[in-house]
Design a protein around this nucleic acid. Sequence first.
DNA 1: CGCGTCAAGATCGTATATCATTTGGAATAC
DNA 2: GTATTCCAAATGATATACGATCTTGACGCG
Lengths: 232, 232
Amino acid sequence: MALTAVSGDEPAALSKSERAYRWIRERIESGRYVPGYRLVLGQIARELDVSVVPVREAIRRLEAEGLVTFERNVGAQVAMIEVTEYVHTMQSLAIIEGAATSLTAHLMTPERIAAARDINDAMAASLDDFNPHRFTELNKEFHAVLYEGCPNPHILDLVHKGWNRMRALRDSTFSFVPGRARDSVTEHENILTLIESEAALLDIELAARNHRLATLEAFTAYQQAHGPAHTS
Amino acid sequence: MALTAVSGDEPAALSKSERAYRWIRERIESGRYVPGYRLVLGQIARELDVSVVPVREAIRRLEAEGLVTFERNVGAQVAMIEVTEYVHTMQSLAIIEGAATSLTAHLMTPERIAAARDINDAMAASLDDFNPHRFTELNKEFHAVLYEGCPNPHILDLVHKGWNRMRALRDSTFSFVPGRARDSVTEHENILTLIESEAALLDIELAARNHRLATLEAFTAYQQAHGPAHTS
DNA sequence: CGCGTCAAGATCGTATATCATTTGGAATAC
DNA sequence: GTATTCCAAATGATATACGATCTTGACGCG
């Protein structure tokens, strides 16, 4: 009942604040809003055909999640990541993702392991004709297969947030450190073998953790050698 | 003018939205707003002598942080924690806090270790004439000494957020599981010994992790035996 | 006596309006 | 030519107003 169709459209079961949130977030995650991009309230409000109030709320949520930074009376911009923060985030991601992987290990079916191995094979195949962006995508998929079944949703959430922070860096470490990709594929296979053989969970956890820490070390070593990249 | 000390002054270097955020958060963390307490926008706005808009933004931020839950057209309330979520949060806290502790271990000065030991001695002394609330406070202080110097601010932040979630449960596990407190003190001393003797970082990490996991297991075992407590 | 319907109050959702702050550039003085 | 001051446009911050939705309890019917 109550066809109050005066204003034209119903709430669509989604508040405008929520719509704004998803809209902005999607644009950040898809890369259309690059790190440092300035989010102007009025402009976004016009594009979404809403007032600024819901947009403000959306940005506040994104701020609390760390996807955007905010300065009073100045505005919001897509969060940037500096080298030091990258290192810290990678380190914590190593710990959390390692734990998530080991917690998921005994739930891995042969099918899922096969799927992971397929992805890793694709990564190996792409080593010639190397495309960092593509490789990073596959890398993410590979690890997602290993931890997405994690029975602890809280840890899973932390892993996702960690990956989100990483996206602020254009194409992850593989863009900078050429040799790292090949080692990475080898370590992937090693992790899969551990899971298949039902190795001790701690061994799996440490393998996954050290895999990521090795990537981080490759990055920092490269930084040392070549001077800081233009990450700001 | 200035009927109330808070009205027409200058911005005081703090936006109203920010003030509302801190005000609500302080009330939640101090326990004045217990889990489940309903946060009514208009009421809070009147108490702070501001309009509802800044209050809304504050609550959005708190929502994104997980301190409050929100339902459309119904309102916000201080986040509650159910048993299953408690287990998941404790598990992730075990992992993160263990990592934080080991990362901080080699930065621990003899003074800080002594401070931690003093706190643990106080915990031991309070075992007779047991007060769960007091014991929980000391427990938090003890661990804080062990990880607050963590060089990775990101991990430190995660530890804090984990503890925040825990507060939603009245007085932690020590209220339920009488025997656990004594074991806890022993394990604390064990951790301190490991740090003092500069044991392998992994051993320290696992000791800290298992210490918390043991508390969790004591809780779940108690749950099994006595039926679910009234945690809602 | 129980259940459905409806109306009133409470509360949330959003738009509009106004004030405050920042920022960039033009005008002016040196 | 450079530096400084000041003004105006852009943008953010907040208040107020009104419509939408939910909750609650009264009322009538079976």
